[in-house]
């Protein structure tokens, strides 16, 4: 058991997820219907994406509190570019590209300020988050500006016989698998685990940390595009709770906040677990006003349990 779990804490998260799926299916018999699964995945996907990106930053020993603001900035950029270019199919593509570009740019700013200027990551990404959300309000002061039908129909629909959300999820798993096989992954863990030792081994500590923030910005941008596909419009205040939820998901997935241990697959499962806890509580028929409290208690217990198991 010990050997099996060594470095595979996500197995426990997976177990928790399966239990939750079982309970949810018992409470809501049509849960496993493809359409119900798809709508649940649509709801969970943005947090999954942000949490995967956050994982890389946490693995490197840092933290990114600006992801929620990046989601908002990417959203307003995308919808504004699409609207400005006339809402054609080409305009949609340009909007998607612009959104991803903005996400990467935000990640680059965070990375440079934290890793190169050596600012304290919590305070810094809080401050850059304020700047990003200010810019989002500059671009789109009020919620609105609907996206063309092709955008949200494409997100709600599918391709190759699979729903788009499933394809996105599969692509995320594929990307994390590719990243995991690159030297980048193991070097980043070294930076997060023993920064001074990593530096003395000759690793480009600064560049690796910037890389982690770039990935976080990229995944926040993808999360934003998914949210935009779901809401089909612009909102400068979108995603405000995502930063703290993503940290919960990362910890639930077995990644140590101190850095160096864990991986994005766990965070993906952790984000799904967070979403499923909300689902189960909803379907358990608790009085409405108790749902938030029970959810908070279960999440706290899960976080504590995860930390306890990780220490063994």
């Amino acid at each position: 058991m010990q050997a099996l779990l060594d470095g595979r804490l996500w197995l426990i998260t997976l177990g928790a997820l399966l239990v939750l799926v079982g309970v949810n299916t018992a409470l809501q018999p049509n849960f496993l219907d493809p359409s119900v699964l798809q709508s649940n995945l649509t709801t969970f996907l943005p947090l999954v994406l942000v949490a995967v990106g956050q994982t890389y930053v946490v693995l490197g020993g840092d933290i990114d509190l600006s992801v929620g603001a990046i989601v908002a900035l990417v959203n307003v950029t995308t919808v504004s570019v699409i609207a400005a270019l006339g809402g054609t199919n080409e305009a949609v593509l340009a909007g998607l590209a612009a959104g991803i570009g903005v996400g990467l740019a935000c990640g680059l700013v965070n990375g440079l300020v934290v890793a190169v200027l050596r600012f304290q990551p919590i305070v810094t990404t809080f401050a850059t988050g304020i700047v990003f959300s200010g810019l989002a309000l500059r671009i789109l002061p009020d919620a609105g500006l609907p996206v063309p039908e092709v955008f949200w129909r494409g997100y709600a629909g599918g391709a190759f016989g699979l729903p788009t959300v499933v394809i996105v999820l599969a692509a995320v798993v594929a990307v994390t698998a590719v990243v995991a096989r690159r030297p980048f992954a193991i070097r980043l863990k070294a930076v997060g685990g023993q920064r001074a030792a990593a530096f003395q081994t000759g690793l480009a500590v600064g560049r690796l940390r910037v890389g982690a923030y770039l990935l976080s910005g990229l995944f926040a941008a993808l999360a934003s595009l998914c949210l935009t596909g779901e809401t089909a419009s612009g909102d400068p205040l979108m995603g405000q709770t995502l930063a703290l939820s993503s940290i919960s998901a990362v910890v639930l997935g077995g990644t140590a906040l101190a850095g160096g241990v864990g991986g994005p697959l766990g965070s993906l499962l952790g984000a799904l677990v967070l979403g499923m806890i909300g689902n189960v509580i909803f379907f358990a028929g608790l009085p409405f006003e108790y749902q938030t409290l029970v959810q908070g208690l279960i999440v706290l217990a899960a976080l504590a349990g995860g930390v306890l198991v990780a220490r063994r």
Binding site: E289, V294, L300, A304, V307
Partner: peptide, 22 residues
Amino acid sequence: VRIPPLVMTLGMMGVVQGALVV
């Protein structure tokens, strides 16, 4: 329990917010 402070107080934030709703 030796939970990292950021995680512990983040989790507690959720619990207290839930208690507020109740």
